[in-house]
């Protein structure tokens, strides 16, 4: 059987919020390493990959690798029934067709148990190679969210140009143009407020803002976001979940016809 427990439901609620607008159905793969999920969005333009490592759970038992096929909307709805500071247990039998979600209030006076029907899903998996990127930008996640939202008012795409010391986000549209320049921080007291720009070679790529705006639903998971960019390969937008894992989004660049 599979059974795991997290001290706070909040982190799993935020993880579901980060996924449910992008993907409708997905498979949680459960192994001794933890929980993981990989899925393309319905138009196959982007890919999301989630890892929640065993070490981040209070308890984690997995007798046999299992795949939990879930409707994301349903799982998110059930997760919303947990209070942020409830502890949460997920449980499933090896050959079962149900996932139990048990929420316990911090004082132990209320326990809620929900059972969710699992689905038999055959979802295409892609091999994501480990690779070095030409540029890696780290910045406050709220700032990145704001930039994507603001540029959506101008155009459908953002052009990201990274040079030593800074990055330009620009958009063009029928009503006009916009350019937002973010400079690398020279001195920061709080790591969460820092902007760092690592450049091996300058890059200039264009991405659909529609998907970046979906990705920024993960903002509450982490104070910082990292953007890894290389010419002609998907952009990686990564949110670390403290002590537990990460949510990573991959977005194919727009290319010249």
């Amino acid at each position: 059987m599979f059974e795991c427990r997290l001290p706070k439901a909040e982190v799993l609620k935020k993880t579901m919020d980060a996924l449910k607008d992008l993907i409708k159905e997905a498979v949680w793969d459960v192994s001794a390493q933890g929980l993981s999920l990989q899925s393309m969005d319905s138009s196959h333009v982007s890919l999301v990959q989630v890892t929640l490592r065993t070490e981040g759970f209070d308890t984690f038992r997995c007798d046999k690798n299992i795949a939990l096929g879930v409707n994301m909307d349903t799982m998110q709805k059930l997760m919303k029934c947990a209070s942020n500071d409830d502890n949460i247990t997920l449980k499933s039998e090896d050959n079962g067709d149900l996932l139990s979600l048990i929420f316990e209030s911090p004082n132990g006076e209320k326990t809620s148990e929900y059972e969710m029907k699992l689905m038999d899903l055959d979802i295409e998996q892609l091999g994501i190679p480990d690779q070095e990127y030409s540029c890696t930008i780290k910045m406050p996640s709220g700032e990145f969210q704001r930039i994507c939202r603001d540029l959506s008012n101008i155009g459908e795409s953002v052009n990201i140009t990274v040079v030593k010391g800074g990055v330009d986000f620009s958009a063009k549209g029928d009503i006009g143009n916009a350019k937002i320049h973010v400079t690398e921080s020279s001195n920061v007291d709080n790591e969460k407020d820092a902007v760092t720009v690592e450049v091996n070679e300058p890059v200039n790529l264009t991405f659909a803002l529609r998907y970046l705006n979906f990705f920024t639903k993960a903002t509450p998971l982490s104070g910082q976001v990292s953007l890894s960019i290389s010419p002609d390969v998907p952009l990686v937008v990564a949110y670390e979940i403290e002590d537990l894992g990460h949510v990573k989004y991959f977005l194919a660049p727009k290319i010249e016809n």
């Binding site: 393309m40 196959h44 333009v45 982007s46 890919l47 295409e124 998996q125 892609l126 091999g127 994501i128 190679p129 795409s157 264009t206 659909a208 390969v233 998907p234 991959f250 977005l251 194919a252 660049p253 727009k254 290319i255 010249e256 016809n257």
Partner: peptide, 14 residues
């Protein structure tokens, strides 16, 4: 004009 390729064209199917 630019076009939007599929993400699956960048990664190997497993």
């Amino acid at each position: 004009p630019k076009h939007q390729p599929s993400i699956s064209s960048f990664f190997m199917k497993t």
